[in-house]
């Protein structure tokens, strides 16, 4: 069972990184000031780099699996075919990652929720029994330390800033909080893989995430009452409409001109 779950798990992690990385890259050239335009583009590049390693791993696993089943003659999958050749229902990213950028505050808050999750997640994944995932986690964790620091400071700066920035952050909280629960509700492929020590047990990192997020939200004067109702589905391929628009733009070139290079 675990053998079939592993490539899906790698895809889930890769999709998270690619989709959020692409969202952040949409700011390139539009950042509020040059320095922050570069900062967020750097983060986008880190994330797309993480996605590449994970897609390469998933592709290797899928091709090995196909070969083992004697499926000769089938075109092998590649990192590119996984990123640019699948449709929305094949993507396994969390809903949080695909949410539209909105204003700078919403983009920052989305990044903060996600970086705080990735920070504790990659910390645990370094101990995965899958040595490739462990190695990717070790490299990625260093990058995420900075993403978390950067986004935390911005959440506090805006939440505890002017009346205008505070109200925009409150709006962003209303928009995004309902997508944070999915980060900790395991899909079937995660359950299958966490018992043998391959996948991260999300129950372990949940309290760590909650404590860190609460700390920053309090400092940002955003620690008020929140709804407990959580939207889920992304990990199973049931997405919000946002993802379709994102993929339409991201995949256009490979769809219109398959295998083109430049």
């Amino acid at each position: 069972m675990g053998i079939h779950a592993l490539p899906i798990y790698a895809l889930h992690l890769a999709d998270n990184a690619l989709v959020l990385g692409h969202r952040n890259s949409e700011w390139t050239g539009y950042g509020p000031i040059l320095e922050q335009d570069i900062a967020l583009s750097n983060i986008a590049l880190d994330q797309i780099g993480q996605a590449r390693y994970l897609y390469q791993h998933a592709a290797r696993l899928m091709n090995e699996g196909a070969a083992a089943q004697g499926a000769g003659g089938v075109t092998p999958v590649t990192e590119d075919s996984l990123a640019y050749g699948r449709d929305a229902w094949d993507f396994r990213n969390c809903l949080l990652a695909e949410q539209a950028n909105g204003d700078w505050g919403k983009t920052i808050l989305r990044q903060f929720f996600f970086s705080a999750w990735q920070f504790f997640f990659y910390e645990q994944l370094q101990h995965s029994r899958d040595s490739e995932l462990a190695a990717i986690a070790e490299k990625s964790h260093k990058e995420v330390i900075y993403h978390l620091r950067w986004s935390s400071e911005w959440v506090i700066r805006l939440g505890d800033g002017t009346a205008e920035s505070h109200s925009r952050m409150g709006k962003a909280m209303d928009d995004l909080w309902k997508y944070t629960g999915e980060l900790f509700s395991p899909a079937d492929y995660e359950r299958k893989l966490s018992a043998p020590g391959i996948a991260v047990d999300l129950a372990v990192i949940r309290p760590l995430w909650e404590e860190r997020v609460q700390e920053v939200l309090m400092a940002a004067r955003l620690g008020g009452q929140r709804s407990d109702w959580m939207q889920t589905g992304g990990k199973q391929g049931r997405h919000t409409e946002q993802l379709g628009y994102l993929l339409a733009e991201m995949q256009f070139l490979q769809r219109a001109y398959p295998n083109c290079e430049w």
Partner: peptide, 20 residues
Amino acid sequence: SIHAADAAMAMENARDVYTR
């Protein structure tokens, strides 16, 4: 040179702009 609201942000902006 870079623009920043305070020293902490200046340090991060310097990192992002000049040590890539």
